[in-house]
């Protein structure tokens, strides 16, 4: 028998009065780290981190599929709804899952839209977490594309989405992991990537909240790949500069999905980020 150390379980939480059945993957022992996937994808993006024995000896990682994503079903009645993720729903979902898992001030690590919501949580619920690692995250990214492209009856939104986001993957990424990363976008449910992008490209409320974040009290570290066209190093640096006490590292050979597209290159940057998630008094 050679199972991977990752285990997957389901739990049900209530968000905005609606029951959501959530799929959670877990691995490791030690300091809890709650991991958030990007738009249009799922928890599989974190597979290498959850299988990394060097990290799981000190940290217990939890990664969950947002409702509508991966193995988390959409809520009852979804068939007549337009899925549009909002900041409020997203914040409540993360807090509800963290509570349901019984986590005590976990580190929050999110990528892309997960990084954006990590910074929103840093601003609005900083005391609920012990640190924030915001990967490929910035204050705001308006869309240069039409998000409606990704949900229409005459084309496959997943295939178009994958072809578009491939622009954000580093040419240094191993082929197998590039395509594993793109496969998740190809599998995304109809309209889900569009609904995530609605949150990511239309809600600019974080800009006015960045100064509320106190990174000297709860650490905030940004990681950004040099090949990320969506959240560029310039975007991440600008965002970090607006957060008192935040730090930022540029990852030269990585793109927008670093933990999934090129795990070996990402690992040292993530290990460093986790090490920074201790306030000076704790060190």
């Amino acid at each position: 028998m050679s199972f991977e150390p990752i285990t997957g379980r389901y739990l049900t939480v209530t968000v905005q009065g609606r029951r959501q059945r959530i799929y959670v993957e877990m691995a490791g022992t030690g300091t809890p780290v709650l991991c958030l996937h990007t738009a249009g994808a799922d928890t599989r993006q974190w597979r290498h981190i959850l299988n990394d024995a060097g990290l799981t000896k000190d940290y217990r990682f939890y990664a969950f599929d947002m409702p509508w994503h991966g193995k988390s079903l959409p809520p009852e009645g979804f068939q007549t709804e337009e899925y549009l993720l909002t900041t409020e729903d997203y914040i409540e979902t993360v807090l509800a899952v963290s509570r349901a898992l019984g986590l005590d001030r976990p580190i929050l690590a999110g990528c892309s839209m997960g990084g954006r919501i990590a910074l929103q949580l840093a601003a609005l619920h900083g005391d609920a977490f012990s640190g924030f690692t915001a990967i490929e995250a910035s204050d705001f990214q308006p869309a240069w594309y039409d998000i409606d492209w990704f949900h229409r009856p005459d084309a496959h939104g997943g295939e178009m989405g994958a072809a578009l986001v491939s622009a954000n993957i580093s040419p240094h990424a191993p082929d197998a992991e590039r395509w594993n990363t793109l496969w998740m976008f190809m599998q995304s449910g109809p309209g889900v990537f569009r609904g995530d992008l609605s949150f990511y490209t239309r809600d600019d409320s974080l800009i006015g909240r960045l100064a509320q974040i106190d990174a000297t009290r709860t650490p905030v570290h940004l990681l950004v790949g040099a090949y990320d066209l969506t959240c560029t190093p310039e975007d991440a640096r600008r965002t970090a500069a607006a957060i008192p006490g935040a730090t930022c590292t540029v990852m030269d050979e990585l793109g927008h999905f670093p933990m999934s597209e090129h795990p070996n290159a990402f690992r040292p940057f993530f290990a460093d980020a986790l090490a920074r998630m201790k306030v000076p008094a704790d060190v």
């Binding site: 578009l164 491939s166 622009a167 580093s170 040419p171 240094h172 040099a226 090949y227 066209l229 560029t232």
Partner: peptide, 16 residues
């Protein structure tokens, strides 16, 4: 190039 520099790696990168 086999491993283009950032921005040169994709047609949308060239635009960016």
């Amino acid at each position: 190039q086999p491993q283009p520099k950032p921005g040169f790696h994709d047609i949308f990168g060239l635009v960016k």
